[in-house]
């Protein structure tokens, strides 16, 4: 078996206020996998995601990214390997132009000049928005901003792309186009979502997080067909949708 891209063992975390968000999470994601992370609101999904690149440090347990433990000394390399795309592109795109924003990550890694320019073009090309390089983020449509947000992370050539609600607020056409793009990327994907049809479409495997623990892990179709499991963890397919 290959080294997992993500290897979480017994990750537990309580917020400083005392609220315990994660109770010993075990999760392994292997290279090339596309995994959906499902769960009701408040299940701890976002808390878990913030552990993947060391923004939060587990109270107990360990996080390893392609064999590299997430510790203070390894933070920059961990953040290169784990690319998180946040839900609101307005949070992710903070520079005055698309080009500067996509360059931000690789520049933090020390890239400059022609190499940096090439990286920016490569990332924008991967999501099909190379023509937007000189635009200001606030002049783009929501769908375009979401794609640029993904490019900002791809520019760091991550080993795993972590997407927080990638389909939220997209119109059906943008949603489908984004699915095509995600499928075309040669990168491991962990996708946090409430959009179960999207999870079925894109991710062969799903993990259900509920009340801070992994309660199910298996083929997405199988999990979503298990109506008892679904009901227990407040997961519902849209009306009229069947697997």
């Amino acid at each position: 078996m290959t080294t997992p891209v993500l290897d979480l063992r017994g990750v537990a975390y309580a917020y400083p206020g005392g609220h315990q968000a994660l109770f010993g999470v075990d999760l392994h994601v292997h290279p090339g996998e596309r995994v959906a992370l499902l769960g009701p609101n408040g299940a701890g999904k976002t808390t878990l995601v913030l552990h993947l690149n060391g923004v939060l440090t587990p109270g107990a347990g360990s996080v390893t990214v392609s064999g590299l433990p997430v510790t203070d000394e390894n933070l920059l390399e961990v953040r290169r390997r784990v690319g998180i795309v946040f839900q609101d592109p307005d949070d992710q795109l903070f520079m005055p132009s698309v080009r500067d924003d996509v360059a931000f990550g690789p520049a933090n890694l020390g890239l400059r000049g022609a190499e940096l320019d090439a990286r920016v073009v490569e990332a924008l090309d991967a999501v099909g928005v190379a023509d937007l390089a000189d635009r200001a983020p606030h002049h783009l449509s929501f769908g375009q901003r979401r794609r640029v947000a993904i490019a900002t992370v791809l520019a760091m050539r991550p080993e795993i792309l972590v997407l927080d609600e990638p389909s939220s607020n997209l119109d059906p056409a943008s949603r489908r186009e984004l699915a095509d793009i995600l499928r075309s990327l040669d990168v491991t994907i962990l996708m946090v979502t409430h959009d179960l049809p999207y999870a079925v479409e894109l991710c062969p495997r799903a993990v259900v997080l509920s009340e801070g623990s992994v309660v199910a892990d298996g083929p997405t179709r199988e999990l979503l067909s298990d109506s008892a499991l679904m009901a227990r963890h407040r997961l519902e397919l849209p009306v009229g949708f069947s697997i």
């Binding site: 923004v55 920059l76 953040r79 946040f86 949070d91 992710q92 903070f94 933090n108 760091m156």
Partner: peptide, 10 residues
């Protein structure tokens, strides 16, 4: 949130 996104990109 912006700060979080910045930190996440190194």
């Amino acid at each position: 949130r912006v700060h979080l996104a910045m930190v996440s990109r190194g």
